[in-house]
Simulated assay, not measured.
Amino acid sequence: MKLEQYLQGKYSKTSYKAHGYMIGKYLNYIGGKAETAEYKDILDFIAHLRKHENFSAESLKRYLSEVKVYYNYLLETGQRNGHPCRELYLKDKIDRQIKVDRLYTEETLESYLEKTRRDPDGPLKRRNEVIVSLLVYQALTVGEICHLNTEDINLEKAEIYIRSEHRKKARTLPLRAGQILLFYHYLNEDYPNLTKYLTINPSSGLGPIRLITGRLQQQVTPNALNRIINEKRKPEERLRPVKIRQSVIAHLLRKENDTRIVQAFAGHNRASTTAGYRQNELETLKSAVNTFHPIR
């Protein structure tokens, strides 16, 4: 079995190439002695990434994980007897603190949505506006948007239901007034044409009908959605979906005194996660000094 076949069997179609890329980076570094490498060789690779690639602690741990996958492959296919780094764990502390002072302003988010409204992308125009409105107004993750079904939208009650997903609670959120008409036109005018050639026909009852579909009538993945929302945008105009979500949550905390309200909105399991988005006055002052001080 070749490495690519092994990864295809272990990971999804959309992710196995990313795993292969990281393993490939290790193989390029280690050269011809990959199959016979020892513990010290793996440490040298991590040191190389740390010094020359300036990777974060999270990235270093991810690359080490992929190196372990590679040697699992060699073991399982009988190309090697021992695993050189199975018990190797990095102690680098991952910084999970939200950089509140670097988030998008409310004006930036509104401008982003307005540019999407003006985008002349034919039958996909309303679809793209639906996606960006869910990012800006409901602070959904790309995964949550991709897993929305048409039945999750209740226009009569002006509500949207978000299912539980990866450490996030299920919740029902209100739709903004402008979203109601947008969703109505999308579902009744654009959506039937976008889904008429899907393998799962909306009338077949064979599976959930996703709210978001692609240009070629395929269901959209989170990675594809990341690309969709920044198509035709200049590099300096591109926004990251995760940072949009973080920005919306941080802005809500500035306006709401009760963290629990924002916690329910975001679907966080723990109040401490929500509290991490709160910026106190001292942090605001420090950010302003760092930004506008004449000697920078």
Rank of each mutant, 00 (worst) to 15 (best):
D119L: 13
E151W: 09
R171A: 07
R163F: 00
P120G: 04
L135N: 01
R167V: 00
H147R: 08
K125L: 02
Q179H: 07
L194F: 06
N193H: 15
P120E: 05
L155W: 14
F183Y: 10
C146Y: 03
L134D: 03
P174E: 00
E189Y: 15
R126Q: 02
I162V: 13
D121K: 15
I180S: 06
I162T: 02
L181Q: 15
L173Y: 11
I160Y: 06
R126L: 10
H166F: 13
Y186I: 08
I162M: 04
L173G: 03
Y186L: 06
N193W: 15
N193T: 12
E156M: 03
I145E: 09
Y184E: 10
A177R: 15
S164R: 10
E144M: 08
Y184F: 15
L194V: 03
L181K: 15
R167M: 12
D190F: 09
C146G: 12
R163V: 01
L140Y: 04
C146T: 12
L187H: 11
L135D: 02
N128L: 01
I180G: 01
P174S: 11
E159D: 04
I160P: 14
E156Y: 05
A177G: 13
L135C: 05
L181W: 14
E129T: 10
P120T: 04
N149P: 10
H185Q: 08
L181E: 15
R127Q: 07
L148D: 13
Y161E: 00
H166P: 00
C146P: 11
H185L: 07
H166A: 10
Y184D: 10
A158Q: 11
V130K: 03
V132T: 06
K125V: 00
L187G: 07
A177P: 13
L134H: 04
V142M: 03
H185N: 11
K168N: 12
G143M: 01
D121S: 14
P192H: 03
L140C: 01
S164H: 09
T150Y: 14
K169P: 10
Y161L: 09
N149F: 01
L181P: 05
I153Q: 07
Q138C: 07
N128C: 06
L124C: 06
R163A: 11
K157V: 01
S133A: 02
Y186P: 13
P123Y: 01
K168W: 07
L140R: 01
L182M: 11
V136N: 00
V130W: 01
Y186G: 13
V130H: 05
I160R: 02
L134V: 02
L175H: 06
L194H: 12
H185V: 10
R176E: 12
V136L: 02
A139L: 04
P174T: 08
Y191I: 00
E144R: 07
T172W: 15
L148S: 08
A177Y: 13
V130N: 00
R127A: 08
T195I: 14
L173F: 06
F183V: 00
N193G: 14
N154F: 06
Y191Q: 09
L124P: 01
L140K: 04
Y186T: 10
I160T: 08
P120D: 04
Q138I: 05
P123H: 02
